[in-house]
Simulated assay, not measured.
Amino acid sequence: MNSMYFTEEHILFRKSLQAFLKKEVVPHIEKWEQTGTIDRFIWKKFGDMGYFGINYPIAYGGLNLDLFYTIILLEELQKVNSGGFAAAIWAHVYLAMTHLNAEGDEAIKQNYLKPSIKGDKIGCLCITEPFGGSDVAGMRTTAVKQDDHYIINGSKTFITNGVYSDYLIVAAKTSPELGNKGISIFLVDRDIAGISATKLNKLGWRASDTGEIAFDNVKIPASHLMGEENKGFQYIMQHFSLERLIMGVNAHARAEFALDYALKYMSERHAFGKSINKFQALRHSIADLATEVEFCKAFNYSVTYRLNKGQYVVKEATMSKLKSTKVADEVIYQCLQFLGGYGYMEDYPMARLLRDSRLGPIGGGTSEILREILAKIIIDNKEYKPAT
């Protein structure tokens, strides 16, 4: 472990988390993968342990710890070999709850952030739309103000926790004529009339409830506007840095998990009178893959350090997701090959790892979109600034 970033307290936290996941999560993973439903009890156990409040204020039940505790949580979640379970957890904590903490008023924080930290309420973030994809500015969902409430109409898709969550953080256009400058963020309770959700059938992330959500004249109180009206696009862009870094960290962690598993397998698998980790072609391939993973990990830690200091790291976080997810796909593909026929079997972890990893270059902004963002920064000198 890199002592530049991790203290003795971090190390102890990691060991405690590993023991918790082994006891409380791993025995249930196969069931959740098969049913596509994560039992509710585990959310409460995470909350009781304080894992949902790692980097949230003490006033709302959080622990107010540095971001490297978050990195540990993300890394260890990848080792349970269920991208869907890991996604359900971090989508709640670092997508939905991030907006509650950043844009929610005191009432929202008391009524939603507090129970979210405790594991009593689960949230989801609703931005992507069926016709918009990564084009946030092109969203069609609207929120029209009428007296002391808003009426929301539209649809969202590919929403993690989109079916079983208790509340939704929804981006909608309050001033469509202003384009991306007319987007606002709202808190919407699940049980309000006019909301319907359909679970999507996915290649990977099978344990999570990824949903398509429709809003049909959904009436919410005006007090559930989060932050200022028409500043939603700035809020979304600001939080994308954390989301992209999270996906970059997830990627290096699952790649490292795949490598560790492959190395163990190769040390035990014999062919032509020796273990297959003695064959030069395989050894050199391992060396290249391990180098790529280590580069990603070191870069991601450095970006985390800067973000923890309050720096605006939109460029670096975008690079993190772009590079790390690509490396993870390549590493896991090759590690499956190292296992030969066993890599193709569902009784071994690589098949699921391969499926789950493939979402990395798609979710949270496709690699193609990320390259264009970086091109604008590097070539066109475009500056992305935090919301004020």
Rank of each mutant, 00 (worst) to 15 (best):
F6N: 06
L17D: 06
Q18L: 10
V26N: 04
H28M: 06
I29E: 10
I42D: 03
F46T: 04
F52T: 01
A59V: 10
N64T: 07
I71K: 13
E75H: 04
S82P: 13
G84V: 09
A86W: 08
I89A: 02
Y94V: 02
A96K: 05
A96C: 12
H99I: 10
A107F: 06
Q110Y: 06
I117M: 11
G119I: 06
I122W: 00
S134M: 01
S134T: 12
I151P: 08
I152R: 10
K156C: 10
T160K: 01
T160S: 15
Y167R: 09
L168Q: 12
L168N: 03
I169N: 03
I169P: 08
T174I: 00
P176L: 05
L178M: 13
G182A: 08
I185T: 07
F186S: 08
R190M: 12
I192Q: 09
W205Y: 12
D209T: 04
T210A: 05
T210D: 07
E212N: 12
D216I: 08
V218D: 04
I220Y: 04
M226K: 02
G227L: 03
K231P: 01
H239D: 07
F240Y: 07
E243D: 06
R244Q: 13
L245Q: 03
L245I: 03
I246F: 01
I246Y: 01
M247T: 07
M247E: 06
M247A: 05
N250I: 02
A251Y: 01
E256C: 05
A258R: 04
L263K: 14
L263G: 00
K274A: 13
S275E: 07
Q280C: 00
E292C: 09
V293N: 04
F295A: 13
K309N: 15
Q311K: 12
E316P: 02
K326Y: 11
E330P: 00
Q337R: 11
G340F: 04
Y342A: 10
Y344P: 00
D347I: 11
R352G: 01
L353G: 15
R355F: 10
S357A: 15
L359R: 00
G360R: 07
I362M: 12
T366Y: 02
I369N: 08
K376T: 09
Y384H: 02
A387I: 13
